[in-house]
């Protein structure tokens, strides 16, 4: 990717992330699925089509969902899917609870948090995961010429995360402690991902936690990769999961199964149709084609590693983010 196209990608991604979603008023309650469906197989297409609304962030991770809907993968499973753009897990949770969206694609940490506050939410499947080895999809970077080169160096420094009290600052604290630094001396500040590069260059922050494509852009401009904080603490940690309410899980297990199967099929389809996924990035996020082609994407998979979610909850309790670790078995609906 040339420098110029990288810049263009950044600008476009910034715009895409900043765009406020005007929630079009489309209340689509899931109709009762026909109880005659014996098995959740593609033959279920014979049944009536169920309309569902899925809340998803307008980010690159949503690309396989957009592409698979256009390719008819969800229709094959008897699902008429509307994607509702959301601006963050916390803001979308009320929409899930009151039924404006039926399923939500959000961070596992947010689901744990919501559960701790007695919100009736369940993780029904994995959506996207970071990589357990190799190049990861997010990490902490320091500015060019900085003396920060390893996690312990972050102690006593000002580190930007997009949102405080979440998986970012939690895993950074853990990785710094692991490397022998004192995480309590880190000054975390909230800086939106698209602003992080400029703030690093202006010297207002010492390091920043950013996802792709910002990670490659900052490293490409001479920044130092300090740590893949997900990979170095909880390798392969899910970044996004599919969330539903406990009521949906209990009252409509057929629908939940059908959604899970449809996502599995969508990801299998997406793996074989990378071009269509890249095209969805161009169409939905207005990323220039060459930028979309080069953008590193996470691993898409519906199989949830429950132990990793439990490890995340335990880590949050260990570092005082949660008062006590919830039992993940109560939150996950398999």
């Amino acid at each position: 990717m040339t420098r110029r196209s990288a810049l263009l990608t950044a600008l476009v991604a910034a715009v895409a992330l900043g765009v406020t979603a005007c929630s079009s008023d489309t209340p689509t309650e899931p109709e009762e699925t026909s109880p005659t469906a014996e098995e959740p197989s593609p033959e279920a297409t014979e049944d009536e089509v169920v309309s569902i609304t899925i809340g998803a962030l307008p980010i690159s991770e949503t690309a396989p969902l957009w592409a698979a809907i256009d390719a008819g993968v969800f229709a094959e499973h008897g699902l008429d899917v509307t994607v509702e753009a959301i601006q963050g897990g916390a803001l979308a949770m009320p929409a899930l609870v009151n039924g404006d969206v039926d399923f939500l694609i959000g961070q596992p940490y947010g689901a744990l948090r919501a559960h701790l506050q007695d919100l009736d939410v369940r993780i029904i499947a994995n959506y996207a995961s970071s990589y357990a080895e190799g190049d990861d999809i997010n990490g902490v970077v320091s500015a060019p010429g900085s003396d920060i080169s390893r996690p312990a160096d972050l102690a006593g420094k000002r580190v930007a995360v997009n949102s405080l009290g979440a998986a970012g600052d939690l895993t950074i604290s853990a990785v710094v402690a692991q490397d022998g630094g004192d995480p309590s001396t880190i000054e975390f500040v909230e800086v939106a991902f698209p602003d992080a590069k400029a703030q690093l260059e202006a010297g207002n922050i010492d390091a920043a936690w950013v996802p792709q494509p910002f990670l490659n852009m900052i490293v490409g401009a001479g920044g130092t990769l300090v740590t893949y904080n997900y990979q170095d603490t909880l390798p392969g940690l899910p970044t996004l999961v599919i969330i539903a309410t406990g009521a949906t899980v209990n009252d409509d297990p057929d629908l939940v199964n059908r959604v899970r199967d449809a996502f599995s099929a969508a990801f299998a389809w997406a793996a074989d149709n990378d071009d269509a996924v890249r095209q969805a990035l161009v169409d939905n996020l207005s990323i220039p084609p060459e930028g979309a082609a080069a953008l590193p994407l996470p691993r898409f998979d519906t199989t949830l590693d429950v132990q990793l979610i439990q490890d995340l909850a335990d880590l949050a309790a260990e570092f005082g983010f949660f008062e006590s670790a919830p039992d993940v078995a109560d939150i996950v609906a398999q």
Partner: peptide
């Protein structure tokens, strides 16, 4: 924006922590 303390920050923080 870019905060880690303050009244406005706390309100947003509480909202995000449910």
């Amino acid at each position: 924006f870019a905060a880690s303390s303050g009244l406005g920050y706390q309100i947003v923080f509480f909202q995000r922590q449910y």
